[in-house]
Design a protein around this nucleic acid. Structure first.
Length: 453
RNA sequence: GUGGAUGUAGCUCAGUAGGUUAGAGCACUGGAUUGUGGUUCCAGGGGUCGUGGGUUCAAAUCCCAUCUUCCACCCCA
């Protein structure tokens, strides 16, 4: 018995209904990106493993999908190596390509590779799927789309501001209330420095990132696990649990981080950014969240994360500044900053909060009922006219029972049906039916074209 | 990667102290209504119970393995 066909774990098919909704999201995002003069690029699904490995930390490396070499992929492997069964040693011999894990690293590669053809600052957007060998859960897939906007080759904070404007504009258009959290890696580094803990910086960021999830006590426990004194761990927490508005948090940082050069820089950056924000008119709520760290270790300056206010689903957009992403590929002094919209999660948010505009989710605008050959010939030119008006118009391909054709229109939620039988052909008036109200009207060809203009 | 749950018709689910032809609702097809959908009524099609082994006279039901989906951790969009 044939097994029921299915797709691999963590991947999905998209039906026409889902695609209409997804395209609504993609189109909205793309429109905003282009409005801010970002240009599109695409990169291959596969990159060389040498491009991908080591850019996302050890955890990230594990989550890379590796592509087996073609042909005899075992030809470089010795028998004794096979017997040792050491996967890490073997992987470099049987695989040299991997599926992209995000769009930022391929973008860095792209910039270095095409540096002489590009005009800097280079502002690009990229909407493509990425793959992670994560264990799937709700809102978490092995194949999902990212919508990235980055600007590279400028360290102006105006770029950060512009990205926040883009975030605000996208979610305003999508009608999703969000909270934009911002922080700065330099401030985090400054906090670590001020306590002589800079060597533990990475561990600290990972631990405090969990603050809202596991609570203060557990975070202290975790910090102590990294050989940090309990007193210092508690002192660290004082920063991250600080309440109050932007000004009061900033004041706390200013007094405590006076001895940290990095901290001072971070404070200056965040202050400047806040000036931009104050002059702007945002719908989103913006919050300085000192416990925001973000896992990816290439971020060096401002970091962002966006959460939906009324749907619980993790972050739906995130990003930050990376001062040296292209350095690994041999191009120094190329500061960049960017954010990534998680289209799949935004989809889930819109669906759960019922925010898809149903009017835009129609598959077809007009259906001609097919009564037979003569009537068909009569309708085809009118159908063509309607299509010229940019309407999505169709004729039922068979002279099937009327009931069946009407049912088709109903299923596809086609708002208008045009019926032309013998009577209509003789009188020269077509019957136009409004499927929602059920009203019918007899109109000439001209009148119908006028109506849909 | 670690731990836990799950899987019966296209969908949502009933059904086990192991025992004839496995059920419902929705969906689908046809009819009532031969030029009218969304409501109603009637009839019908569709499942070797995720897959592969095992125990048993007998397995949807018990055991093992495997895959899927979901949850927590890890990490993250």
């Amino acid at each position: 018995m044939a097994e029921k066909p299915s797709v691999p774990k963590g991947t999905r098919d998209f039906t026409p209904e889902e695609m209409l909704r997804r395209n609504y999201i993609f189109n909205t995002i793309r429109t905003v990106f282009e409005r801010y003069a970002y240009v599109p690029i695409e990169t291959p699904a596969m990159e060389k493993l040498s491009t991908l490995l080591g850019k996302y930390g050890d955890e990230g490396d594990k989550l890379l999908f590796k592509v087996l070499n073609s042909g005899d992929y075992l030809k470089k492997v010795q028998d004794n190596e096979l017997a040792e069964r050491n996967p890490n040693a073997l992987v470099s011999k049987i695989s040299e390509k991997g599926l992209r894990y995000d769009l930022t690293v391929p973008f860095a590669r792209f910039v270095v590779q095409h540096q002489n053809e590009l005009t800097f600052p280079f502002k690009r957007y990229q909407i493509q799927p990425v793959w992670r060998a994560d264990r799937p859960q709700k809102g978490r897939y092995r194949e999902f789309y990212q919508c990235d906007v980055d600007v590279i080759g400028s360290d102006s904070l105006l770029n950060e501001f512009e990205l926040v404007q883009i975030i605000d504009e996208v979610f305003t258009l999508l009608n999703v209330p969000v909270i934009i959290k911002i922080n700065n890696r330099k401030i985090l580094l400054g906090i670590a420095e001020s306590m002589g803990l800079e060597s533990q910086f990475m561990n600290i960021t990972v631990a405090i990132d969990k603050l809202d999830k596991i609570g203060e006590e557990k975070v202290v426990e975790e910090l102590c696990g990294f050989y940090i004194d309990e007193s210092k761990a508690k002192a660290l927490l004082e920063f991250f649990t600080a309440n109050g508005d932007f000004i009061s948090k900033l004041q706390l940082l200013k007094t405590r981080l006076s001895n940290s050069e990095s901290g001072q820089k971070g404070i200056a950056e965040i202050e400047r950014l806040w000036d931009y924000f104050s002059a702007a008119n945002f719908n989103a709520e913006i919050e300085l969240d000192l416990s925001l760290a973000r896992g990816l270790n290439y971020y060096t300056g401002a970091i962002f994360e966006v959460k939906a206010r009324d749907v619980q689903i993790g972050s739906i957009c995130g990003g930050g500044r990376y001062d040296d992403l292209t350095g690994i590929f041999g191009l120094e002094d190329m500061s960049g900053v960017g954010v990534s919209f998680g289209a799949d999660r935004i989809y889930d948010v819109l669906l759960q909060s019922d925010r898809f505009p149903e009017a835009e989710m129609k598959q077809s605008d007009v259906l001609f009922i097919n009564f037979g050959e003569k009537e068909e010939a009569y309708c085809l030119p009118i159908l063509a006219d309607l299509r010229k008006l940019d309407l999505r118009a169709e004729i039922y391909p068979d002279a099937a029972k009327m009931k069946k054709q009407m049912k088709y229109a109903d299923k596809k939620q086609i708002p208008w049906v045009i019926m032309v039988g013998e009577e209509e052909m003789n009188s020269g008036k077509l019957k136009l039916k409004n499927m929602q109200s059920g009203e019918e009207a007899l109109l000439t060809r001209q009148e119908i074209l006028e109506k849909f203009k």
